[in-house]
Design a protein around this nucleic acid. Sequence first.
DNA 1: CACAAGAATGACAACGTTGTAAAAATGATT
DNA 2: AATCATTTTTACAACGTTGTCATTCTTGTG
Lengths: 336, 336
Amino acid sequence: MVTIKQVAELAGVSFKTVARVVNKEPGVKASNVEKVEDAIAKLGYRPNKAASLIRKKQSDIIGFISDEISTTPASVAILKGAQDMAWEQGKTLMVFNLDLKHPNKDKLYEECLQHRSEGIIYGAMYHQSVEFSELFKTLPTVLVNCVSAQNDFTSIVPDDELAGYYVTKQLLYKGYRRIAFLNLNPEIMAAQQRQQGFLKAMQEYGIPEEQWHIDTIEKVVEGRTVNIAGEVAKQVIQEFKPDAVLCGKDLAAIKVYLVLERLGLTIGKDIGVASFDNWHDIPEILEPQLSTMALPYYEMGRMAVAQVLGLITNKNKAHQPTHYKVPCLLFDRESF
Amino acid sequence: MVTIKQVAELAGVSFKTVARVVNKEPGVKASNVEKVEDAIAKLGYRPNKAASLIRKKQSDIIGFISDEISTTPASVAILKGAQDMAWEQGKTLMVFNLDLKHPNKDKLYEECLQHRSEGIIYGAMYHQSVEFSELFKTLPTVLVNCVSAQNDFTSIVPDDELAGYYVTKQLLYKGYRRIAFLNLNPEIMAAQQRQQGFLKAMQEYGIPEEQWHIDTIEKVVEGRTVNIAGEVAKQVIQEFKPDAVLCGKDLAAIKVYLVLERLGLTIGKDIGVASFDNWHDIPEILEPQLSTMALPYYEMGRMAVAQVLGLITNKNKAHQPTHYKVPCLLFDRESF
DNA sequence: CACAAGAATGACAACGTTGTAAAAATGATT
DNA sequence: AATCATTTTTACAACGTTGTCATTCTTGTG
């Protein structure tokens, strides 16, 4: 690779002058700027970030560690948001994926440390509580889509309770009175919080207990999550006979749509359907289009970077970890 | 950050001895190894990769540039595959996303160059032809899920023609004789190649032209791709009355399922449905489960890294760019 | 006990940058 | 033309490593 000294030689100036031109520092004669820029172009010189890092002690790198995040479509948006924000702030994201074969967070953290990452973002696939070792205290660290078991890290999660509350209120507002909530696996934090919101809305409207039904569309068998949305949907719709179904995720809503089609019920008229996710293309491909609570993943990714940059700048100041709950947006389409 | 010299001081040896321990070089007395390791643990020392890079002139970084890839669920697997392979080979992936706001490939390539990336992978969201500037010739570069307009880069794409051929053959083999192919936007390379495969299979079976029907589920309106799978599916099924429907993507298959449910047709019995993608959870959530041609994204990601590493090692040798077509696998479930 | 051979260690340059301070060139003023 | 202030340029140390080579310490042998 061509170095700053080679450029200097070709341009006939000292290498420091070249450095000034490269870093747009003032105090270089116009004629020299031109000579240097010509030489740079001719040789195809690019500054070596690594060299600059050792000297400046600033890497401009943010580590992004994800627990399998990048295989799950919805939360990929977190990464995208983080990427965008990082780029806007002149930072580079270094992405590492945890997976079943390498479930060792600490090893990836070490990797980030060796690259002199200035801060770390840890992102989870679904809203959950995660255990972290002391190692994670080394650098400014922000959690996204999860919280730590000890609540000792700044975290950014969707406001699932508010989301559950809001969508239920909307259903009630539109006149639905007999609602089936087909929730996610209740071990998931998101499921619990949404359920709280759901119940709160129900109570506020004074809906008696026999007017709603909560069921789960996921079963955990030997550690693996099994989807049983199909059977549950069919059974609940036929036996409980709700006038609206609230689904834990858009994928489950597909199931509900299929069941309702078979039964000849018209969605949005005979029965309302709502859901959570706003998962890439699915709500729009369904007919009628699915009204669903969008999880603000992209925005959360952006916030994570913003927060971690904040922590980096205020590194020395003591601070309390903050827990951000990002509101979810209802995409109000045609299904209820 | 703590440096090798601080470790040396605490351990009471020269910093060179510490370096030897860190890099597991031979020729250090056991007692000193222990002293050094203690000091490292006590101070929390981690080698500075940037410093090592300048000296060794080896960054172990591979740049991954994607055109919006990471927002699209299916092809995220490319990234995951690349990530895994890179990690196994002791390399670090540096991921950059192109998007509508920053559609400048060259700028991201520059970024990779500044990090002294050893090679570049360019990944596309869907199988297509892309234009590259001369800049992309700077480093060993491999394209994944796309080819260059001039065919002058090593590329890795799914074998869409074979996939189209194979799935059609399977349909025919199982006795379906009146097949509707609801293809993707015909401007997409994948659509064209699959159609060729489809036609080849039809000809080999000697199926007359009036026995099949090809239609498109996407329309391009003012540069944006609009999904019209719903209308097309309804119309084609009712008018052409196929005994099997081959969908361009799993999302479109959802539409077809809904139409068939409404018509009261039993999928896998009255009518067969096949598709392309094997898109995360969708085929399995449908009932009956969708038989679909899986696009080998994960494997392609792995191959891309493997190829780029090959190019890096043989950098000096002249080579012809190779074009790999990765076979797709039929996930044979219950829908035909 | 002297010596050689081999093992272990250390001193120091080098990598490509940035930062600091001193030197040189330029221009304005007398 | 001499002086001074200002602008521009250069020389060189520093960053945290690795690589080279010289030095010191062990150990075994005669």
